[in-house]
């Protein structure tokens, strides 16, 4: 159980409020996922084919993705054989260990690439994933840190999108640079960069219209937006964040692939993780594309955007298992 102990130690050094938020936000995810897991261990005394088949279903039901699940199951089978594990109870920590390993590749990878002068962050994604809301929350976050923020209303297509960002601007107390609906988003970006420069802003958050990744024209438009930003500030955008909806299934992989190709995605914001969606897609994306998750959206409030920390995430996911482990340790 040393793995859990280590995890626990790491987490206690972090503020309690963050931990609680993660735990609360992930309650639904954890309940169903870990509940299923425990049931599985209870139902199957021994580790056999059927056990693995059931485990496969649980992981797939979490949207982990067929390929990743297959890989994982193969690894687990090997591990079980190697360590000569027969009892279902004994394989449980191995499963958790593997999952955590998959998520945690290195420390601090969720940190944003912040600049001394102005940091430009571009948000991209398909329709309805929560780009504008995430930008609002992000602006609030930077504002809390005492930074001056400017937001660019680059979604000139969807009805009401500019107004939506403006409402967030008022709420948070941040300027929104906009043109009228239907104008060229690249032109909005150009304006926003000039405005942000003259205001000496620390952070420029760029909203874009949601677009399905198979629309070549719209993806080209996005490329142009990025090009205009890079032309005005050489190494900008410093971060391109792909906003993904946690309820999305296998298509999230296609989204991550295509958006990466056009805009060099540097990180992922996983939204709507407070429902019953299990966020397993995080594992699949990490495994197949190696794009780190940087933030997670855990609710509708202004503060409900959290920096992604694999430790916290695994902790939230396995809180029940963790408690059990502790009790066991105490008994010893």
């Amino acid at each position: 159980m040393s793995f859990f102990k280590k995890l626990k130690e790491k987490i206690t050094t972090q503020t309690d409020s963050v931990t609680t938020k993660f735990k609360d936000g992930l309650t639904k995810t954890r309940d169903s996922f870990v509940g299923q897991m425990n049931e599985l261990v209870k139902n199957y005394r021994s580790v056999d084919e059927e056990f693995f088949e059931e485990l496969e279903d649980i992981l797939i039901s979490a949207d982990v993705g067929v390929h990743t699940v297959m890989d994982l199951i193969d690894e687990l089978k090997d591990e079980a054989r190697r360590r000569n594990i027969k009892d279902a109870k004994d394989i449980q920590p191995v499963i958790s260990e593997k999952l955590a390993e998959m998520l945690q590749k290195s420390e601090n990878e969720s940190a944003l690439n912040m600049q001394e002068t102005m940091t430009v962050i571009l948000f991209v994604g398909v329709n309805g994933v929560g780009k504008t809301t995430t930008i609002g929350k992000m602006a609030h976050r930077f504002k809390q840190e005492g930074k001056s923020v400017v937001m660019a209303a680059g979604d000139t297509f969807r009805a009401g999108a500019i107004e939506q960002l403006e409402v967030w601007g008022e709420r948070v107390g941040v300027d929104v640079i906009k043109q009228q609906a239907g104008s060229d988003p690249a032109a909005v970006m150009f304006d926003a960069i000039q405005a942000a420069k003259s205001r000496k802003a620390d952070v420029l958050l760029c909203d874009t219209a949601g677009r399905l990744q198979n629309k070549v024209n719209l993806m080209n438009e996005l490329e142009k937006v990025k090009r205009v930003i890079s032309r005005e500030i050489p190494d900008a955008p410093h971060e391109v964040l792909l906003v993904l909806d946690a309820t999305t299934g296998q298509n999230a992989m296609s989204q991550a692939k295509t958006f990466s190709k056009t805009t060099d995605v540097s990180g992922i914001v996983l939204t709507k993780l407070d429902g019953t969606a299990k966020g397993g897609i995080v594992l699949a994306i990490r495994n197949e594309l190696d794009i780190p998750v940087k933030f997670v959206g855990l609710g509708e409030g202004m503060d409900d955007l959290q920096e992604f920390e694999a430790d916290q995430y695994v902790h939230g996911l396995f809180a029940d298992v963790l408690q059990e482990a502790e009790e066991l340790a105490e008994e010893d």
Binding site: I60, S61, A62, D63, V126, G128, D245, T247, T248, G249, Q250, N251, A252, G275, T276, A277, K278, I281
Partner: peptide, 12 residues
């Protein structure tokens, strides 16, 4: 319902 929804579509 979003056509891209994954396994969670059933719960929703």
């Amino acid at each position: 319902v979003d056509a891209m929804t994954g396994q969670d579509a059933v719960n929703v």
